[in-house]
Computed example of a mutant assay.
Amino acid sequence: MFLTRIGNRTYRFDLITYVYNPKEACTSMDVWQTDYKDDPYQLKGITRQDFDAFESKHNLELPPSYRKIVQKQNGGMLQYNSVIGEGDILFPIDHLYGIGQPGLEDSPYLIKEWNLPQDILIFSGDGNAWFALDYSAGAPSVIYIEADTEEVIKVAPSFEAFLANLTYQDPGTEMDGGNWTKEEAEAIFSGQDEYLIEEVILDFAYTDDSQWYLGELLNLTEHSSPLVREAIDGVIGNEIEHYLHESQEETVKLLKKIINNLSRDSNGDIRRHMKELKERYTL
């Protein structure tokens, strides 16, 4: 059994099978997904002088393990999709920032824009949830920050430990809705029980039938409950690279419609998140 973090809530899943990447364990030099076409996070290569200039500019020291992986590739999509944090909480993550923009250089802007803690360096995330190095106690630990709830969760005591806990989540057949059939989900989505709707939205977050799922989410973007729309916002933020990587025209079309609808949401945080996704992925 694992706990998994989706949006700003923690859920227990008993049926998910978690396995390590076929290469079994993360090594400090072998984290990147090298066959990802048009990787939105990969920046041009950097030199030792670039590292030194960044550290001098921001008055901090990057973890040696971060420097190692970024010397090989300056940011990008990971061959892993989750990290096991303290307390066996599973956090979705599929990319790391490189040095530059968009990347680590965006950290000061995000800190100011979202009123985040000052002694941090954001190295992954989108919208309203991020992974960051926390320098407040000296040697940096890794934390997970959620702007909506102002919650800060410790993930690992160091970046090296964070890398060692990266894992590949294999949803298997049981992840396609877990406790619900599609017919049951559709009936729940047409109702007004916002907590049950949120639960089912998250339960289907890893379904293989992306077109069906995104079609249901599109309908729910007009739901009266902020809780339901926030759940959709969290799923889209976590899974957008997956949907874009599928490259199926109908999937991308549905994704864009969801983002456009949520861009007009009454919740300012949701509108801002959608704007950031549009800009980052040129949607």
Rank of each mutant, 00 (worst) to 15 (best):
I145M: 02
V200P: 00
E146S: 15
P157N: 14
F162Q: 00
E186F: 10
A185H: 01
E186Y: 04
N179G: 04
V200K: 01
N165K: 11
G178P: 01
G191E: 03
L202K: 14
T167M: 01
L166K: 04
I153H: 02
D193N: 12
G178F: 07
D170T: 15
E150F: 13
Y168R: 04
G177W: 00
N179I: 06
G172C: 08
I188Y: 03
E199L: 09
T173S: 15
P171T: 11
E183K: 15
E160C: 13
G191L: 04
G191F: 04
L166R: 01
P171Y: 07
D193S: 03
E183I: 15
L163A: 03
I188Q: 02
D193E: 04
A161M: 08
G178Q: 09
E174G: 03
I145R: 00
A164Q: 13
I153T: 15
G177I: 10
Q169N: 13
V152N: 04
F159W: 08
F159T: 11
A156D: 03
E160V: 14
V200G: 01
A164G: 11
E198A: 11
A187V: 13
D170K: 10
P157Q: 12
S190Y: 08
D203P: 02
A187G: 11
M175C: 12
D170C: 07
E194I: 11
E151A: 12
Q169F: 14
E183D: 14
P171S: 11
N179T: 13
V155W: 03
F189H: 03
A156T: 06
A147E: 02
V152C: 08
F162K: 00
Y195M: 12
A147G: 03
V155I: 11
G177T: 07
T149N: 01
F189P: 00
